[in-house]
Amino acid sequence: MTRSERLAEQLDWHWHKSLRPRLDGLTDEEYFWEPVRGCWSIRPRGTSTAPMSEGSGEWTLDYAFPGPVPAPVTTIAWRLGHIIVSCLAYRVEWYFGGRDVDAGAFAYAGTADEALKQLDEMYGRWHAGVRALSDADLDNPPATGPERFPMENRILHVNRELIHHGAEISLLRDLYHWQDGAVAGPPGIGAGPTPRT
């Protein structure tokens, strides 16, 4: 394998074996589930109570700049929106000539199915771009975009982002399906010991 193939494979193995299967069967109820008060989410335009919201369509993403401390808990919808736009779409645009992306002009998904389609599209573009890089590409900063670290560093950063945010989403799915000792949900969700009664 080339270096770029090894870097791509690190995330792609996780994507196919762990993260993407854990998102199968995601319902709109789970997508928008707020486990605590004050969550940030994706909401119908004009209904957010966050300091700011961004997005161009019928749905907007809650946020603030600078971010509050401590940061609010975020829903699966918010986390998927963050992965799609901030982790993948921006970098596909900067590094691989993708379409111009602006979080303020992005049409955030109002359903789980739509969000997963956006996720699959952006992940596919990211993965193809990484696999096509040469060793020289990896050793140098990206030719475009605001980041001046070597491209290999940027790829490892995105890998970490998707792995850790994917784990957060998986945990939220587990919590949703095990609320109040409920029976486990879809296959692969909530696997573990039976709660004591």
Rank of each mutant, 00 (worst) to 15 (best):
L23E: 00
Y123V: 00
C87L: 05
L19A: 05
R37I: 14
K17H: 11
P186N: 13
P186M: 14
K117M: 03
G57Y: 00
G166D: 04
A109E: 11
I84K: 06
L138D: 06
I163P: 02
A71N: 13
H177P: 00
A167W: 09
L23D: 00
L133M: 11
G57E: 05
L162K: 05
P141Y: 07
R125Q: 12
W78N: 05
N153C: 14
G129V: 01
L138P: 05
T197C: 15
N140L: 11
L119H: 06
V69S: 14
E54M: 11
L133Y: 04
A89D: 03
A143N: 14
E168M: 10
R154L: 14
T27D: 08
S18C: 14
R160A: 15
E29V: 05
G38D: 08
A128F: 13
D135T: 11
V36N: 12
L116T: 01
A109V: 09
A136I: 12
V130I: 09
A64N: 02
P150Q: 10
V158W: 06
W33C: 01
G190Q: 01
L26P: 08
Q179S: 00
T74L: 09
E9W: 07
A105W: 07
A112T: 11
A143H: 14
A143K: 12
A50E: 05
D12V: 09
A8R: 10
S134Y: 12
S53L: 07
V69E: 15
V101S: 02
A167C: 10
E30W: 03
P35H: 12
S41R: 01
V158P: 13
A115L: 02
G46W: 08
R125D: 04
F106C: 02
W126Y: 03
F96T: 08
P68R: 03
G110V: 07
T75C: 04
L11V: 07
R91K: 09
